[in-house]
Every structure is written in C-alpha cells, then in structure tokens.
C-alpha cells in the first residue's frame, strides 16, 4: 500500500510537471485519468492536495511563504470533505455486504415454498407467487395426506420485506410440525393461531385461507383467517362467486374458532385463491375492481391452470407498469374429471 501510495505521488508529480511545461490537452487528459486512479486507490482529497503541495515546493523552492501557508489552509478545508468521502466509502461497502446477506436470505426463503405442485389425476393446479421486492410476505403450501387429499394454504403476512419473511419462516415450521393425519381446515387454523399468537409482536398478524380437496368425493373444505376472498367458478352456471370464509386474522386472540365451509366441486369448476397483492393492484385510474379481475380470469379460463395464473399475473403487472407494489400470489385448482 505504501509503495503504491508513493508511486502514485510520484506519478502526480510527473504529470503535473509535464503539464506545466507543455500546457496542452494531453496533460489535462492525464489529470482526468489520474483522478480515476485516486478514487480507485481510495486516496482522499486532502492527500491529493498534499501531493500537489509537495510537487509545487519541489518545482519552485522559493515559493512565497504565504502561498505555501494558504495550501495548509485549503488542506484543512478539504479534510471534512475527505471524511465525508471515507464515510461514503464505508457505507457503500456495508451496503454491498447487506445486499449479499439479503440475497442469501431470499434464496433461503425460496426453499420455504414448495418446489413442485402435487400431481393428482383429478386436479389441474396452477401457482404463481412473485415478491414485490427480494423477500416475500406471501406464503403458500401444499400438503398431500395418506388419503390423497390435497391441502392448500395461502397466507399473507403483514407488511413486506424482511420482517414479513422472518415471520413466514415461523408459519412454515408451524405447518411442518402439524400432526401427520389429515387436519380439518378449521382445526388447522386453530392450531396455527395458537403458535402465531404466542410468537408475534402486538401489531403483527397473518391472514390465511386453508382448503382441503378430497378427490374421492370432490369436496373442497375450507376455512379462512381474515384472508382476502378468492373466487369459485362454476362451469355449469358459467359464473364466478366470491369464495369467502369469515374468521379473525391469526395472532390476535388465542382461542379463536374458525368456521368450516365446503363446496361440491363439479368437473370444470375451479377455485381461485389469492393474496391481497392481486386485488390491491393499483393502476393510474385507481385500484382494480374485483370484477375486472374476474373478467381477466374469464378471458383465459379455457387454458391450463398454470397458464391462467401466469397470463393474469402478466396482465396485472403490465397494468402497473411492471412495478409490483405488493407481493402477488395466485393459485388455481380445477377439477379435471
């Protein structure tokens, strides 16, 4: 370091000398190149100034005292500037470090989400979940029990980013530690609520909708904890209706009961589950209406479930100029046969 420092100092002396002799563009160009070099080597403004003073004293030994002193004065002034520059440098390094940590956390968070969607003969399932920034506050999960029932959970954790992501890991582990046998949606939410209530800060909460599809009788049982309502599409009637399960959000009251609802699912019918990032999609004209969302889904309803969710996401993203304001999750389960 000291070597390169004195080396740079000498270089400064050389180019300055040359410039004072030739006074041409090439000299100025070298000065520009030199400033890149000092930045690269993290040489502060006051150090650069002292290079200048040393060089001048060498070139002009009989420089007036007061001129020399004026450089000391300027040096003092530049000191503050140099300190700010160093603070900026260290902040930049810290930021890089933080970003790297967040990237690690974000990729770790990805492992919380199911890698693959369960394959069942009678169901066509489509899922999309896209965070607004690096970390997501949306969570979804599939469980297949020994009776081939498919459990599906969609949850939205208050807020976004890192705090939401931390909370999400709790939900993930709580879900994983639930008893093996099939849980009814209401009982499952009661279990989770107890865990969440004991473990979150007073202004945190989680909304969740949990459903269980029984492929033997084609029943969809579901319960909700304050979650954004989804939709139920009936092919026979060609209508969308709201799929809503009333219930208090998780984490507020220890002994909360969750009512269970159910639907008889006919071939071609499908269930749409979503997070509020879908319905709170905001365009220039304001929030999109749920009716508009229905029309979007209707437009693609003949496609496979995965293509529907992707197409709907793309259109909503486009409406918001490709800037998601909130995490976005959309799940479709359709009875095939």
């Amino acid at each position: 370091m000291t070597d390169s420092f004195s080396c740079i100092q000498n270089q400064y002396k050389e180019i300055l000398k040359q410039y004072l002799e030739d006074k041409n563009e090439i000299g100025l160009y070298q000065a520009q190149q030199f400033s890149k070099k000092v930045l690269e080597h993290q040489i502060s403004p006051e150090e650069t100034l002292s290079f200048h003073l040393d060089a001048i004293e060498e070139f002009f030994p009989d420089i007036p005292h007061s001129l020399r002193d004026s450089f000391d004065f300027l040096l003092e002034v530049m000191m503050g500037y140099g300190m700010a520059y160093r603070a900026h440098q260290s902040l930049r390094d810290k930021q890089k470090e933080l970003e790297a940590e967040i990237n690690v956390a974000a990729s770790m968070q990805q492992t919380f989400l199911p890698e693959e969607i369960p394959q069942v003969d009678s169901l066509d399932i489509g899922v999309i979940s896209v965070p607004a920034s690096k970390m997501s506050g949306d969570y979804y999960h599939f469980i297949r029990d020994e009776n081939d029932c498919i459990g599906v959970a969609i949850a939205d954790i208050i807020g976004k980013g890192i705090p939401a992501a931390l909370c999400m890991s709790m939900i993930k582990y709580a879900m994983d530690s639930l008893p093996e046998q099939r849980l009814q949606p209401g009982a499952l939410l009661e279990n989770l609520n107890r865990v969440v209530e004991q473990n979150v800060a007073s202004n945190m909460f989680i909304t969740m909708m949990y459903g269980s599809y029984d492929p033997h009788v084609h029943h969809f049982y579901y319960s909700g904890a304050g979650h954004e309502p989804g939709f139920y599409y009936s092919q026979k009637e060609d209508t969308f209706e709201e799929l809503y399960a009333k219930g208090l959000v998780l984490g507020i009251k220890r002994h909360t009961k969750f009512r269970e609802y159910h639907k008889q699912v006919e071939p071609g019918d499908f269930v749409v589950l979503l997070s509020d990032g879908v319905t709170e999609c905001r365009t220039e004209e304001g929030f999109i209406e749920r009716e508009e969302l229905i029309e979007l889904i209707r437009k693609y309803k003949e496609l496979p479930a995965q293509e529907i969710v992707e197409k709907v996401f793309y259109e909503l993203e486009r409406l918001q100029d490709f800037q998601l304001r909130d995490d976005f999750s959309l799940i479709i389960l359709r009875r095939k046969v």
């Binding site: 954004e228 219930g247 208090l248 507020i252």
Partner: peptide
Amino acid sequence: SITGLDEVINIDNEKREEAK
C-alpha cells in the same frame, strides 16, 4: 370486515349481526 377485526374493534358503535 374481511379480516374479522370488526368483531374485536368497536366500529361506529354498532354491534354487527353478521354470521360468526
């Protein structure tokens, strides 16, 4: 209403009669 918070916070001081 969706979040069920209308059941735990007083809103407009009217008791909601919606299904629980």
